[in-house]
Structure formats: structure tokens, C-alpha cells
């Protein structure tokens, strides 16, 4: 990325495209119960929408969207959501990741499992997105070093 040519058309196209990819990523995560989709695919789409701005605009414009040092806490938060859901059901007397013990009042066992799957899908999506951004940032920074 040493001799990057500044092209306003490419930057404008990526600026136009990035929010729609992000919205589609959110849709794929949330709507994964009723159509093909889920945490892994939606997380990959969300990560792609951030990486598009980083590839097109370089570091300064890419950092406006998501700061570089924010990627690691987001990945930890994604793992913690998943692990916390499992730990909560242990503390309330069930097995690890047994969703029917989650403390949401007024719900049957089937709908509790539905909600539990939704919570962990959000966790998976966060972790995958943050990991993709982390891999790209570290590789770009490692390549800048060798001159």
C-alpha cells in the first residue's frame, strides 16, 4: 500500500456501498431464524463493510468508522456474551448452555430456547466481525513496517 493512487470515484463508490452492506449484515444476523443466515455469515458481511472503507480510503478514513483499538474489546465482548449465557444457565441450576433455565419471566421452554439462540448469534456476529477487522489492521500495519 505504499504507492496508493487517490481516486475519488472509488472512494465515493465504497462510501455509497458500505452502509447498505452493513444493513444487510444486521438483517442476516437478526433474521437468521427464518431464512438462511446466522451469526457467522452476518458477522462476515459486517466485517466486509468495514474492510471496504479501509481498503478504499486508507487508514485515516477507515479509522473514522471504527477505531483500530476498538476491535479487540469487541471480540472479547462477543465471546463474553456467548460464555455468559452458558454460565448463567449453570448458576440457575441447569447444564452449560441449557437455554430453558434463562431468567426471562412469562415464556415457555420453546420460546426461551428461541431467545437463547438469538442472543448467542449476536455474540458470534460481534466476534467474527471484530476478528476480521483485527486481522486486516494488523496485517496492514505489519506491512508498513518493512521499509
Amino acid at each position: 500500500m505504499r504507492d496508493r493512487i487517490d481516486s475519488p470515484i472509488v472512494l465515493l463508490g465504497c462510501r455509497l456501498l458500505s452502509p447498505y452492506i452493513m444493513l444487510f449484515g444486521f438483517y442476516v444476523v437478526i433474521h437468521g431464524h427464518y431464512s438462511p443466515g446466522g451469526g457467522f455469515q452476518g458477522g462476515a458481511l459486517l466485517g466486509a463493510s468495514f474492510l471496504l472503507m479501509r481498503v478504499a480510503g486508507g487508514d485515516e478514513i477507515g479509522r473514522l468508522q471504527l477505531k483500530e483499538h476498538l476491535a479487540k474489546p469487541l471480540a472479547i465482548l462477543g465471546v463474553a456474551i456467548y460464555f455468559g449465557t452458558g454460565l448463567l444457565s449453570i448458576l440457575l441450576g441447569g447444564n452449560f448452555l441449557d437455554y430453558s433455565f434463562l431468567p426471562i419471566p412469562g415464556m415457555d421452554t420453546e420460546w426461551l430456547r428461541y431467545t437463547g439462540i438469538l442472543i448467542i448469534e449476536v455474540g458470534i456476529g460481534l466476534a467474527v466481525m471484530a476478528t476480521f477487522i483485527m486481522i486486516y489492521d494488523n496485517m496492514a500495519r505489519g506491512e508498513e513496517e518493512d521499509d
Partner: peptide, 17 residues
């Protein structure tokens, strides 16, 4: 295979590092 694809991408990133 859904999990295997994403793990493959992560392994690719580690090997490129």
C-alpha cells in the same frame, strides 16, 4: 461446513501473519 468455512478464513489470516 458453516463453521469450517469461517475457521478456514481465520487460519488463513494467521498463516499470512
Amino acid at each position: 461446513m458453516l463453521t469450517a468455512i469461517v475457521v478456514g478464513v481465520a487460519i488463513l489470516g494467521a498463516s499470512y501473519a
